[in-house]
Amino acid sequence: MPASPYIEFRDVTKRFGDGPLVLDRVSFSAAPGEFITLIGPSGCGKSTLLRLLAGLSPVTSGTIAAGGRDPAAVATDLAFVFQEPTLLPWLSVAHNIEVPLQLRGVDAATRAASRQRVLELVRLQEKAGAFPRQLSGGQKMRVSIARALALAPRMMLLDEPFGALDEMTREHLNEELLAIHAQQQWTAFFVTHSVAEAVFLSNRIFILAANPGRIHAEVTVPLPGPRTADTRLARDYHELVAHVSRLLRSVDPEAA
């Protein structure tokens, strides 16, 4: 367990209305800059866990602390990347990236500087004036990530952002995301259904079980950085993928 946690979940339980338990006494902590991936069968509460962290939904019982404070108090420190790119179709790429900054009252010059910085990070400078419908699926998701990065967050919550992309694009974006994370060192919570993606990206993987949602197992990923396309060829990587797959199959027999 990390020595000085940035995020702490203590016995967090979540139930929507009178429905069944979605999360049951979930406890963990995450150090600043850690990359944690949540993986598990559908309905195990992965996305709910992110929404609790983002303050989009209240906990039923238990506590969440971010930097020793309530997550709502550090809302300005976090950014969320949804499953869909969730871009505003009537705005250009540049203006989409500026939206969160605009909502926070950041002046135009600072917004433009931030936009320029993150467009370079995701290598989309030449698309600044394009509209979302002129972009490919992968480019849209890179804009979505750029928009999140424009806030210079301390924590990134990514809810299966690459799920709809083809394998090649997904692998490229995984590498780009890790490179950006290595520079900026935000704490990341990443939801995925892909074991390979989880192993490639993470410092730790939480395997969640369903009915009710809970952490079934935790796997530390000791692969060295920087991780590149070659990492996927390494024997350690394949062993870890096999190990996580076995654990996942024990909670989700339908998992590959």
Binding site: L56, T76, F82, E84, L88, L103
Partner: peptide, 27 residues
């Protein structure tokens, strides 16, 4: 309006007016 976009604005603590004029009206 797309629920995800509403959540995005909620997440970034948009005011009611910001939500109306930057999101709902253009949508």
């Amino acid at each position: 309006v797309d629920r995800n976009l509403l959540e995005l604005f909620q997440l970034y603590r948009a005011s009611r007016w910001q939500q109306l004029f930057l999101l709902r009206v253009p949508a």
